[in-house]
Amino acid sequence: MAIKVLHRKPLTLAERTYILPILSGLRITLRNMIKAPVTLEYPEEKPAIPKGYRGVPTLVKDPNGREKCVSCQLCEFVCPPKAIRITPGEIVDPANAHVEKAPKDFELNMLRCIYCGLCEEVCPEQAIVLQDIYSMNSETREEIVLHKDKLYELGGTLPDAHFKWDKKKKAADEAAHGGHH
């Protein structure tokens, strides 16, 4: 690839005195001073959250209020600042035991989280979602380490695309009542 050498235009005499450029600069700032401010007054005025915004990662439940997370720990593995810590556990409720696994605890250290969204991207169950919460704070370090309950509370409910709860259950029941297929 050819290298093209660009030479800076030599300064004119007026420019070299600095005075005129400085004056024009002063004019620009002065004009800005007269204009109305462009900022939002945050706590009263809230910014509009764009689509795909990466806020605080939260855990979501399916419309039937069942945990989507199966504690596969992929988010824990992929998390660059190691903000996630999952204690895996088994589902004891016999009705849903076919899903087998759910987190006993899901610890999300918001002091560490960098909002990269890799956890959301890696999640095979679409259980962790970065929603629109952008101001997460607390008075103690312990409080800002979010646990399972808090995360589900923040996350709410999202539609389930996996049907692991119902479709599997139906099939299992059919199989149990005899008959292959």
């Binding site: 700032t29 001073m33 109305a36 401010p37 462009v38 900022t39 007054e41």
Partner: peptide, 10 residues
Amino acid sequence: KVASWAQGRL
């Protein structure tokens, strides 16, 4: 104040 005015802030 001057800084914020020049930068379009309050």
